[in-house]
Design a binder for these strands. Structure first.
Lengths: 337, 337
DNA sequence: TTGTATGCGTTATCAC
DNA sequence: GTGATAACGCATACAA
């Protein structure tokens, strides 16, 4: 590949001059500038970004760490597409690293992006604890933002949606409609989001003096199949319920299918609520209500804040995004409607 | 950040020795090796990957170019998660660049990864033509593989699934079941995949001496909403059909919803076939048959081939992956079943 | 087994 | 305006 040196020779100038016309910094005569551009075109020169970054100690890249297990589904693709678009709008490039299946691998992914000298890092954590994340931020000078966690120490370095509060709100609305027997399908319980949604369910019941009944709670693992399995288990227990909250839409969809197959009409007999409001849901199960977590807004705020920091700014503000319950048919109805 | 120089000083050795223990190349005494490791730990040293890559002219990264518009949906997330996993299994890192919304931007994304000196590039093209892709491969020394296109010149640098043949096969199976009035919802027609699926539909009809009727073809744009809209349009035309092929599952799902709302029973009256076999489909519309394109197999072959090339190998073999029709209820039935 | 010296392709700070 | 030249942090051939 042609280097700057070759361009310089071809144009009859020095490397320094070529660099000047490329960076736009410093004075260059119009005529020599033209010669340089000609030489660049002739030689098919392309700048070596590695060398440029090394010399300038700026890479113009943002790193994003997400766990493989989140890749599936609409929520992730939406997050990623917005992140990519926004980053490039700001004249930078998004680099993606896979956090895989453990805290250690998640840490390695972060470290990799750091080693690549990304200007800033966005972490959508899955396994790392809040304290570990706080510590990572402490130990590095690069701006780091954490999505979907409420950090203790670096409160302004995170943007989150209160999963528990959203869950409380959704369940409360079911209660307000007259439901008392509300079943719950959890997500994976090694995931903070899964834990918080479950905890919100219990909290809402407690607030309305309704006892938490273990036979109404089954464990899922985010997939449609596990949602179906959850309903099968509930029915096997002879549990009766007029409403069902699944910890995400995928499971809710699986659950609804199982309810149908078990000859239970939906939503006539069971009101179902999910989380995430995936785009395809209204077309498949119009009866499904869903709590929408505003991924777009969160990633936008995150990147804006990061860019602001890179420009030397300093944040002392924290921000949370509320989940919004998208009501379709089912939640409207009380039990036995 | 601590550099190699500082580690060397702390360990009382030269930079070269530190480099040797890090790369594992060259002889280093056990005792000094221990001193170096100690110094690394003490100083919190982290290698600068930019400098390492510049010096060694190897980045250990694979670049992947995908267009933003493909980000949505399960197909993409599956592709990406497999690509990331496989790349890291091979001891390398995956870098992602967004091809955005035009051939020019797609070209820029490729160029960016090239400028970053990725060891090799994977392109999942959306706008670039086969000839342009062939030309790009011609002009660069890095190994480049193209997914989902059949290149003319560099036949061994691509892995594709014959979209047209899959479409012919699916439609033929409908015809074999006795269907004669088969409607078709296209994808976006600026997309080769969209064009090929339509062309396969026409081909299958021609093969069975069935006239292509324009009133049975409506244009969609991949989304569930456009699928629903397509059916609405078909019905508005008073078109009659016993089967419907949608160019992907998202549109098929939207179409089925619209058929239901128009008081048409499905699959009793209309057999529906889609493409992609998205994971959630069996839970939402068990009656939907679908042509599965084996993304996993394609990306696996692609990366294997790339790694092989990086190791100095040379491919002269081309490979295609057949689409497979996943039959569920609907296609089984003939018309008026 | 270890150190020295040079190069990787830029940017950036000086002089001229 | 332009040209040397020193970083940037590392790998590596060559000496010792």
């Amino acid at each position: 590949m042609a280097t700057m040196q070759e361009v310089a020779k071809r144009a009859g100038v020095s490397k320094a001059t070529v660099s000047r016309v490329l960076t736009g910094k410093g004075y260059v005569g119009e005529e020599t500038k033209a010669r340089v551009f000609a030489a660049i075109a002739e030689s098919g020169y392309r700048p070596n970004l590695l060398a440029r970054s090394l010399a300038s100690s700026k890479t113009q890249t943002l790193g994003l760490v997400v766990t493989n297990t989140l890749y599936h589904g609409v929520y992730f693709s939406e997050l990623l597409s917005h992140a990519a678009r926004m980053t490039e709008d700001k004249g930078r490039q998004l680099l993606l690293a896979d956090g895989k299946h453990s805290a250690e691998e998640e840490r390695q992914a972060i470290q990799y992006l750091l080693d690549l000298r990304c200007d800033a890092i966005i972490i959508y954590p899955r396994f790392l604890s809040v304290d570990e994340l706080d510590e990572i931020i402490d130990n590095h000078s690069q701006p780091i933002m954490v999505l979907n966690r409420r950090l203790r120490k670096h409160a302004s370095h995170c943007v989150w949606s209160d999963q528990k509060a959203s869950s409380v709100s959704a369940v409360s609305q079911l209660i307000a409609r007259g439901h008392r027997d509300i079943a719950f399908i959890t997500g994976s319980l090694d995931s903070p989001t899964g834990i918080e949604r479950l905890s919100g369910y219990k909290e809402a019941l407690a607030q309305h003096d309704i006892a938490v009944r273990d036979e109404l709670i089954v464990q899922g693992k985010w997939t449609p199949a596990s949602g179906a399995q959850g309903v099968a288990e509930l029915l096997a227990r002879n549990a009766t319920f007029t409403a069902l909250v699944a910890s995400n839409d995928d499971m809710a969809i699986g659950a609804i299918k199982q309810l149908h197959e078990s000859k239970l009409a939906v939503p006539q007999q069971v009101s179902v609520v999910g989380f995430d409001d995936i785009a395809i849901a209204p077309f498949t199960v119009p009866a499904l209500s869903s709590v929408k977590i505003p991924a777009t807004g969160m990633i936008k705020e995150t990147i804006n804040r990061l860019i602001f920091m890179l420009d030397g700014g300093d944040f002392h503000q924290q921000q949370t995004f509320p989940g919004e319950l998208i009501t379709r048919d089912s939640i409207i109805n009380g039990p036995h409607a």
